[in-house]
Simulated scan of single mutants.
Amino acid sequence: MSGWGHKRRNTVGQDAHEDGEDGSSPSSPAAEGKRGRQPLTPLQRALALLTRREHSRRELARKLVERGVEAAEAEAVVERLAGEGWQDDRRYAELVVRSRVSGGYGPRRIRAELSQQGLEADLISEAMDGFDGDWTETACDLVRRRFGPAGLQSLAQRRKAADLLFRRGFEGDAIQRATRLGAED
């Protein structure tokens, strides 16, 4: 039965508080909670974010500023991490393309997302060119997953599929081909 301020008997038989005056455990520095830790430096904050997942330069700087780091210092930290290879917009772009394609998104949506993250047009083009699949086949796969292997059986289903593909960022020709599934069989 331990709780805040709960008294316990120590080995000498005296009453002792489990918690110290400031709420920290008096026993050892290793047992200290978050309150006893030094605040993270901007570099440590950035590294903590990058160990969870890739970030674009813009996104990483924005998150640091949101966490109280001055904008100039955040930019300097991001620049340092990019120089040391911890942060790489090219790697980030490639990861986003792979991730979004596997999630059923088309080229328009992916390009827009990468652009929104502040990536340069040449990096976006390079990452998109790195996709070695077929956008039409990706659209067809999404339609099969959503509407079943039998394909689209009615005009209403074709319209729903076309709307889905459009929202997901596919081009017109891929939408047309994917919405013909089941119609020619």
Rank of each mutant, 00 (worst) to 15 (best):
residue 77 V to Y: 07
residue 122 D to R: 10
residue 96 V to R: 03
residue 89 D to Q: 04
residue 104 G to L: 04
residue 90 R to H: 11
residue 118 G to K: 05
residue 119 L to H: 00
residue 78 V to L: 07
residue 79 E to F: 13
residue 114 L to D: 01
residue 79 E to N: 15
residue 84 E to G: 11
residue 112 A to H: 08
residue 108 R to L: 13
residue 89 D to R: 00
residue 98 R to H: 09
residue 97 V to A: 05
residue 88 D to T: 06
residue 90 R to C: 11
residue 65 V to R: 15
residue 111 R to E: 05
residue 94 E to K: 14
residue 119 L to C: 02
residue 71 A to P: 13
residue 65 V to F: 12
residue 102 S to F: 12
residue 81 L to S: 06
residue 84 E to C: 09
residue 119 L to A: 05
residue 101 V to S: 15
residue 105 Y to D: 13
residue 76 A to K: 09
residue 109 R to M: 07
residue 111 R to N: 06
residue 116 Q to A: 14
residue 82 A to S: 12
residue 75 E to L: 08
residue 93 A to D: 01
residue 119 L to P: 03
residue 85 G to R: 13
residue 68 G to W: 11
residue 85 G to K: 11
residue 101 V to Q: 15
residue 89 D to E: 04
residue 98 R to Q: 14
residue 93 A to S: 03
residue 70 E to C: 03
residue 88 D to S: 12
residue 96 V to C: 01
residue 115 S to H: 14
residue 85 G to E: 06
residue 88 D to L: 00
residue 74 A to P: 02
residue 100 R to W: 11
residue 109 R to D: 06
residue 113 E to H: 04
residue 88 D to Q: 04
residue 97 V to L: 03
residue 79 E to Y: 13
residue 85 G to D: 06
residue 75 E to H: 02
residue 86 W to I: 01
residue 98 R to D: 15
residue 72 A to K: 14
residue 104 G to K: 00
residue 123 L to R: 08
residue 81 L to K: 02
residue 118 G to V: 02
residue 84 E to V: 13
residue 123 L to G: 02
residue 107 P to F: 12
residue 104 G to P: 01
residue 92 Y to D: 12
residue 122 D to Y: 06
residue 111 R to Y: 04
residue 71 A to I: 09
residue 66 E to M: 14
residue 70 E to V: 02
residue 97 V to F: 01
residue 79 E to V: 14
residue 86 W to C: 05
residue 95 L to C: 11
residue 105 Y to T: 08
residue 114 L to G: 05
residue 116 Q to L: 13
residue 90 R to V: 15
residue 93 A to W: 05
residue 124 I to R: 05
residue 106 G to D: 02
residue 78 V to G: 07
residue 83 G to F: 08
residue 82 A to C: 07
residue 70 E to D: 09
residue 85 G to W: 02
residue 121 A to W: 02
residue 92 Y to G: 08
residue 87 Q to G: 09
residue 94 E to S: 10
residue 115 S to L: 14
residue 78 V to M: 09
residue 81 L to H: 04
residue 76 A to G: 15
residue 122 D to Q: 01
residue 79 E to A: 15
residue 75 E to R: 11
residue 106 G to Y: 01
residue 75 E to S: 04
residue 67 R to Q: 10
